[in-house]
Structures are given as C-alpha cells and as structure tokens.
C-alpha cells in the first residue's frame, strides 16, 4: 500500500486539471512516432531543402529547352529524345559504366584478400588495422587523384623513374590521359571504402562453420570456395554497390586523368552547366544518370535480398 501523503507533488500534478500547453506535451509523450518525427524534423527539413526540392526543380528543368541565354519553359521531352537518339550519349553512358564496372571488379578483387586477412588472421590491434586501411578514404579525394597525376604524368614518377633506371628509352604516353589511368585511380581511391563491408561480412562468419567444412574433408582452397565465399557474398555485393554507383558519376578523376577517351558522364554534365551552358540538357543527363543508378540500385537490392535469404 502506498502512502500518498509522502508524494505530494506527484499527486497534485495528477489531479490538477491539464493546462493548455501540457496537452501537447502529453500527446507527444503518448505518441511515440510523433515524438520521433519531431526529433527528426530539422534533419528532414535540411534534406528537403537540399535534396528533394532541388530534384523536383532538376526534373522540371529537364523538360525545358535552351533559348539563347534563357530557357524556354514549355514542357517537352526533346532533351530526353536527343539523349535517346544521339549515339554519343549512349556511348558515354556505356563508357562510364564500363570504366566504373572494371574499377569495381578490380577493387573488390584486390580488397577481398586484405579484408580476409584482417578478419581471420589479425588477432591483436584489429582496430588499428581497420583504421589504417580506411584512413586514406577520408582524406582529400582531389589530392589523392592529384597524386596519381604526379605518378602517371608524362614526366611523372613512373616515366622519370624508369628513364632514370634505364628501363625505358622514352616516356610512356599511355599512362596518363587514358581509361586505364582512370580505372587505376578509381580503384585505388575507393579501395578503403570496399574493405569495410567485405570485412564485416567475413568477420560475421561463424568460425565453427569453417572448422566443420575442414572436419568433413575440405582443404583450405575447397573450404574457401564452398563456405567462405558464398557466406561473404552479401559483403561482396554491398562493396560492389558502394563503389560502382558513386564512381559512375565521378568527375574529378576523368577530368584530371582521363584525357579525351577517358571522359565520363559526370564530365559531360559539368560541360552542360559550364562551358556549353545548356542547363536543361545537363538536368536531363543528371536525371537519366539518376534513373540508371536507381535501376542498378534496385538490382543490387534484389541481389542482396536473394543472398540474405539463402543465408538466413
């Protein structure tokens, strides 16, 4: 039995008629989801101003056309038809996907053994290893790309180094301003990002499953292909997604290292908003890129679902 006289404040509060302001507080207190959204609202407001509104306008502008230095705001699909009919746009898109696709595959292939090493063979200072591997990713992207310009340049590290060593007679021209240069740089720049999902998926694998496979007669190689690799597929898919999507629209790397044959869709979009000054066309290309990204994103999502379902 509670002696209510000992709790004067609480009882008084409960009995007193609710004031106007207290009503809202009470409602917020009861409606959990409402409180949640209230807390989220400043963040959501920024996202609305910074992402949703711009996209609506971008979508609108993509239906406009350029007229001299101004826009003809009559809605039309002319830009989309141009993108569809003129082969240069398709070729550009294809090249963008090709370059970032190769970079993605290369990055995942190179990072997988490293992630495997840290997940299975590093026992002390795991955290230090993880930080060491991901550290470069957080530093200036521009400067990391610039570093590759220094390395691959006509008089860069490789050419001048090899010349000084007498390995080559004259500077190699294929290094800079090529698709290869873009692919190498993208793979290097995004490697630190690919490591994490790979590491997480490998770390999650129950060690007793690997022991069971060994116990049932599998040597290390067979065990890897029958157990480790299938179980780490969600990480491989996630890593591929996290590299492929952002690199498709990359601007800096092809701009600094791509040369005429290494330009990607991002450079073309920038051209429309810059020198060419055809903003509606730029908007259209951005929307088309977004649609592609959405489609690819859904494909990855589906793949992840399938992989998860098989492993659940």
């Amino acid at each position: 039995m509670t002696d209510t006289s000992l709790l004067p404040d609480q009882t008084a509060d409960a009995i007193a008629p609710r004031r106007r302001g207290a009503r809202l507080t009470a409602m917020l207190h009861r409606r959990e989801s409402l409180r949640g959204y209230l807390f989220m609202s400043p963040t959501l407001a920024i996202m609305a101003v910074g992402i949703v509104a711009p996209f609506i306008l971008l979508l609108t502008m993509s239906t406009w056309t350029r007229q001299g230095f101004d826009f003809d705001t009559t809605p039309t699909f002319a830009n989309y038809l141009r993108v569809w009919s003129e082969p240069i746009f398709g070729a550009l898109m294809q090249r963008s996907f090709w370059i970032s696709g190769v970079a993605t595959v290369a990055t995942v292939l190179v990072c997988y053994p490293m992630a495997y090493f840290v997940a299975f063979h590093v026992h002390k200072h795991k955290m230090l290893w993880l930080i060491l591997m991901t550290l470069p990713f957080w530093t200036s992207y521009l400067l990391r790309v610039f570093a590759w310009k220094v390395i691959l340049g006509y008089e860069g590290v490789i050419n001048s180094g090899f010349l000084a060593l007498g390995w080559i007679e004259e500077p190699l021209k294929v290094l800079l301003y090529s698709q290869t240069a873009v692919i190498i740089t993208l793979a290097h720049a995004w490697a630190a990002f690919a490591i994490l999902p790979l590491y997480v998926s490998l770390e999650k694998i129950d060690r007793s499953l690997l022991e069971a496979a060994t116990d049932l007669g599998d040597g290390p190689v067979r065990r890897f292909f029958r157990i480790t690799l299938p179980l780490s597929m969600p990480g491989v898919i996630a890593a591929s997604f996290l590299i492929f999507i952002p690199t498709t629209g990359d601007y800096i790397t092809p701009a600094l290292l791509g040369g005429p044959n290494g330009q990607m869709i991002g450079n073309f979009i920038q051209l429309q908003f810059g020198p060419v000054n055809n903003w509606p066309m730029g908007a259209t290309l951005s929307i088309v890129l977004m649609l592609w990204i959405a489609a690819i994103g859904l494909a990855f999502l589906y793949l992840t679902r399938v992989a998860r379902k098989r492993l659940a």
Partner: peptide
C-alpha cells in the same frame, strides 16, 4: 552513395 555531381547541379 549517389554521385556528388548530381547533388551539386541539383542545388
């Protein structure tokens, strides 16, 4: 994930 250039031009 989404390329920064898209957010840049949209803004």
């Amino acid at each position: 994930v989404i390329p920064g250039i898209i957010f840049g031009v949209a803004l």
